[in-house]
Design a protein around this nucleic acid. Structure first.
Lengths: 202, 202, 202, 202
DNA sequence: CATGAATGAGCTTTCATTCAT
DNA sequence: AATGAATGAAAGCTCATTCAT
């Protein structure tokens, strides 16, 4: 093989591909994408060197496969209806979903961010996905900020940066127990922040 | 070649070292630290390969030199007195300083974040500096949050993530004109967020 | 898997083997022997990887199978009686046969020549077959050149090179229409060349 | 280095590059281009692995460098004036030059022919150069064949194939002693062949 | 007979670093 | 101080071949 990334045709193949994806996620998170060697991945997956290339075009292809999953889930959050009777509730729910996805995929997101710094392809994918959810948040903020000097895009980018940065930095290795409390704090910051935007500070 | 990179002893040497630092900053930002080659740096600086090693121990040494500057400035912000008669003013001022530093050093910060993902040494330096300013912010928040369910460290980390993430993502290539307006928005978000923390959402 | 490639025992097997030979001939000709991958061959034949090794010991075995056919036909030409009442007619006939065989098997001959450059086994087979027909030609030239300074082997090798080189270079992709005209030209060159050998140039 | 094949800037570099070219020529001829490993070449040149890539882009680049020389010499032969008072002398001279070049560069030509079978780039270069000298020969034959049924291009290709094939097969490892006698035989074949073309065989 | 997943030796290529000049 | 040729360890990747199903 080697021509085409190959889609597994047997259940055995599917299992092997899944083991490789898991191994890649783990190795990328531990060593960083740049420092990770294909050898590390195949060792972790318990397969031979060549098998890696049966399922991925190359190292970037493995990360792409991981990003596919993550991007799909982020897309789902973006596309979900935001409307709720209570604005505070709506925000809390959205935040929670964002944080959940980021926390669940913190490994991949971290790898993705790193790879974006030196691989244009991943920078591009990141830009597309991120622009998607920033635009969505900005769209929600738009009416509330219409009469203020604040640009909804700027505010949205900042709020998203808070969740994204916090999730990828803070939640990476944590267990899920206190996630609820963290989500509460983030939601309060976000909601309060929005109120602050509509009411002059002074 | 000595083990330790030379401190320039002549003005010619100082100029060469400065050209190399500039080139490194630029190349690291463009290509990413992992993808940047010493070759690229020396080409950009217009010096030969060997000269690089006259001024830096190795590639990491060049980034370390850049980080030294940035860390020094961040340290200054952290150590400055925060107190101001008006809380809102104090926050606005701090935010502004943070944003300024991050925006001025966005290249280096971006490189630093990337390198942290695969080089323990840079992860360590990042942790130290970041812990410093998060702790400082948490310390400021502590009294206000004492009677709330919010953990000052969690809140501080989120607020810092907002500034840091926003600065490294959004301001990297921008011109400085609308920086003031962005700072205003960030400050409002932060300040409003803090209020939100002390007043139950409902 | 047996050590020795199976001789097809069923008509299905025979069809599969034939498809593989055709695919190999075609792929070798298109990509070259060295660059051709077993993968390409099995894809062209529409069979699986393993099936290839049911019929051939390895990649070289596939070429060997193709060479067997070609060598057999060349051998036939070599062994045919050359004598004819008219010398010119005899030469024309032999040339025609040679050219026909080379043209029909130009794909295989081209592959064979290439493989000879890096595989001693094929160099050996080529040498044997080529020596055979060069010797045969030399033997025919011998009496006529006895009283000249020309070495029959040298002349034979040159004449054979003309046909072989021309056939493999020029006729590879041509249709058969003008083959007759080409054969006429080649025969004239050959025949005239021989006359030239027996008559001093001046 | 590695970006650009690099032109040596010092005499030491020039010597190293020359040693690498010699080593490549020799290794390619011995093992064949496809089977030759960069390791073989650097071992023969007595340099390290990396040095190879200082002077050549890759294995193909090394062959390209060798072909440059050979193509240049062939071009010279093609461009030389052909005219001579005596047609037979003219032909003998041209043949001699061709044979000399082919014999001197038989190593490279052999490698080139082999590589042409699996590398389009070398096939292209070969076609260009070969078309050049075939066209030149055809142009010379044109007047003489105007009143015959023979196509000058066909005849030229055949005659050239004779010299090319003979030189690359027969002269590869020979010493130059009997080259003169071989050239005489080839010239006689060629000249006689041409006469044969103008006088009907029958 | 046929399949295709798995293997792993082998080769190419890169690039940080050294060092003679 | 500066140069740039040379090094060589380290990866990445390919593909002929095997073998369990």
């Amino acid at each position: 093989m080697s021509d085409v990334p190959a889609v597994p045709r047997t259940s055995r193949g599917e299992r092997t591909a899944a083991r490789l994806r898991d191994a890649a996620r783990q190795v990328f998170a531990e060593r960083g994408y740049a420092a990770a060697r294909v050898e590390d991945v195949v060792a972790a997956a318990g397969v031979s060197h060549g098998t890696f290339y049966t399922y991925f075009t190359n190292k970037a292809g493995a990360l792409d496969a991981l990003i596919d999953e993550t991007a799909r889930e982020l897309q789902t959050v973006v596309e979900e209806p935001w409307d709720a009777p209570d604005a505070a509730q709506a925000i809390a729910t959205v935040i929670e979903r964002f944080v959940d996805v980021f926390a669940d995929h913190a490994d991949v997101v971290g790898t993705w961010l790193e790879a974006s710094a030196h691989e244009p392809h991943f920078r591009q994918r990141l830009r597309e996905v991120r622009d998607g959810y920033i635009a969505r948040v900005a769209q929600q903020l738009d009416p509330a900020l219409a009469s203020t000097p604040h640009d909804p895009k700027v505010a949205a980018a900042a709020l998203v940066a808070m969740v994204e940065g916090y999730a990828t930095q803070g939640l990476r290795a944590d267990d899920a127990e206190d996630r609820a409390s963290r989500v509460r704090t983030l939601a309060a910051l976000w909601f309060g922040g929005l109120l602050g935007l509509t009411q002059p500070i002074g």
